[in-house]
Design a protein around this nucleic acid. Sequence first.
DNA 1: AGACTTTCTGGGAACGTTCACAGAGTAAAA
DNA 2: TTTTACTCTGTGAACGTTCCCAGAAAGTCT
Lengths: 339, 339
Amino acid sequence: MAGRRSGGRRATIHDVAAEAGISRGTVSRVLNNEPYVSDTARRAVQEAVAKVGYVRNAAARNLVTQRSRAIALIIHEPHSLVLEDSNIGNILIGTNSVLSGADHQLVTLMIDSQRDSDRVVEYLRGGFVDGAIILSARTGDPISAAIAEMDLPASMVGHPSDAPDIPFIGIDNRAAAEAIVRRLMATGRRRIGMLASGLDRDSGQDRLLGFTAALGDAYDPDLVVRHQFYSYAAGMEGMEELLARDPSIDGVFAASDAVAAGALDVLHRRGVVVPDDIGVIGFDDSSWALRCTPALSTVRQPAETLGGLAAQQVLDQLSGVDFERALILPTEIAWRESA
Amino acid sequence: MAGRRSGGRRATIHDVAAEAGISRGTVSRVLNNEPYVSDTARRAVQEAVAKVGYVRNAAARNLVTQRSRAIALIIHEPHSLVLEDSNIGNILIGTNSVLSGADHQLVTLMIDSQRDSDRVVEYLRGGFVDGAIILSARTGDPISAAIAEMDLPASMVGHPSDAPDIPFIGIDNRAAAEAIVRRLMATGRRRIGMLASGLDRDSGQDRLLGFTAALGDAYDPDLVVRHQFYSYAAGMEGMEELLARDPSIDGVFAASDAVAAGALDVLHRRGVVVPDDIGVIGFDDSSWALRCTPALSTVRQPAETLGGLAAQQVLDQLSGVDFERALILPTEIAWRESA
DNA sequence: AGACTTTCTGGGAACGTTCACAGAGTAAAA
DNA sequence: TTTTACTCTGTGAACGTTCCCAGAAAGTCT
């Protein structure tokens, strides 16, 4: 790395050594915080570094250490949804901040097609990254399988049932869904429907399971509308369908805030008053929630922390320290006006 | 880069050379598509590469070429806004796709504070990237100044009036704003206000200029409410203020779709019917536009193309070919139901 | 034929680190 | 005193490329 820019050559470790009147090896030891360096030497190096404006050449370091100091964040969603889902954005922010603190680069890889998927696997095999974080993995995901097979240090946010033995971090979607649906039931609703989405991954499945568990005997499969994506559009279509199936419905659990937002808009256009006529709850507590009218009651999940801890799991594998291979973070209910 | 994973050592250029029965130098020439290589040699190398599963070691290449093959994308916005503004997301997608096509990495750097800003300047000086793309630069931006001074190949999306001599790409915010405001006037509105935002950068200033130009004599400075960010919250506050200043207002130009969305929600809560009572127009044609009720009339700007061309400008500087230093892309009006 | 020119190939050197090893100096234990 | 252990330092080698130069081979012009 490090091209020579205005003002000639960049300083190298040799320049620092010469300036400090000390050998290359000792400079390297100081730079890497290794023991067995005298205080005088350490100070001399620090001064020399400041004086000559030395910055370590990453390429040279990577070459000899056989590491890239880069971690991939694999986002398995259509582009349009990535922008719509602020959860992903928050995870990204958390990941980025932990990685940059540990002097690692985040490389974001988006998968939007089969071609992308193959390209990503090839990229990972190319050894351009030391580890990977997998977001929104589906069941039967070829990427996870490839990562497990080449045993690249990795971490998944969420945990598909058939996932290979990869460490993961997530929330208890089932319990959280059950809790908020019970809360909705406690407001006296009798006919509660669900707008289920993301059923190709654990989060979607578990939220549906939580829903059925909460309803118990009152569960009516007819009141569950399924859709592929956690999207605003899915919420609109699903809500129309739900109303068509049973106009007497008085509660709706949307699998995500974006879905809930779509549902709210349909209800509003039809003149159905929320929460008077129908109570609506969502999931995520994303930026949608406060923007909805009325403000959405939803489940808050710590997306940024999720991303940060996933990064930490990968870093821990890299440094060989012990770590928890399965982390479940707590959620809480944010109860507002929509139910 | 390229750590040794399961199955021993990775293949190097030497393995390819040995397999092809040819020298290292020739293999390198084939890999880099250089001339002066015989067809037989070329074919032999290609076969050998496939056979031994060779992938070029990026660190070694970067070390000797003194390049990092990485380009920074500098996003100068609060985190929360980055997620809210789908324009940024689309620019990012465009940039990423052009760069990865040219075998370069995109490194996203977000600036949310003065500390971040210093850190970024230091990062750029460190030579970790070969070039930079600057998003949403403000007037008096220290990053642009630093980049110009160390003459790092760069490109700006947008163009602050005081910007140093850095190539840029953008749209004609002034003309586009003027055009859509004129269209709004053509619907018979007499009292038109503006929710101005982002006045610390060219886009915000120019949209305001376009607004005043369109109104001409009808322009009333009292009907312009200013806010710092292009945000939903700014739209809400601004709309309240505008209504307070003049309840007889019948048209609003919001500086962005997010701002317009906030305004629409306030109007709705107050029982003001759009577009019957007030016509509302936005700017960007982001994902907000179709999600609003009613669907927003707005200016479509080619965000993804903008990002892609900015990346191309940087790549062109790197390869030394001629390129256009100032590009203005056309916009179009997306006229829907909100006005 | 001879003298150029062009095409093609091989191998030394360099890029800037880290790592392992050898050895010097010093302190503690026998 | 000798032995053993520990702390600290310098240096050669290696990481895997690209670049450059020298020279061979082939083609073209007098």
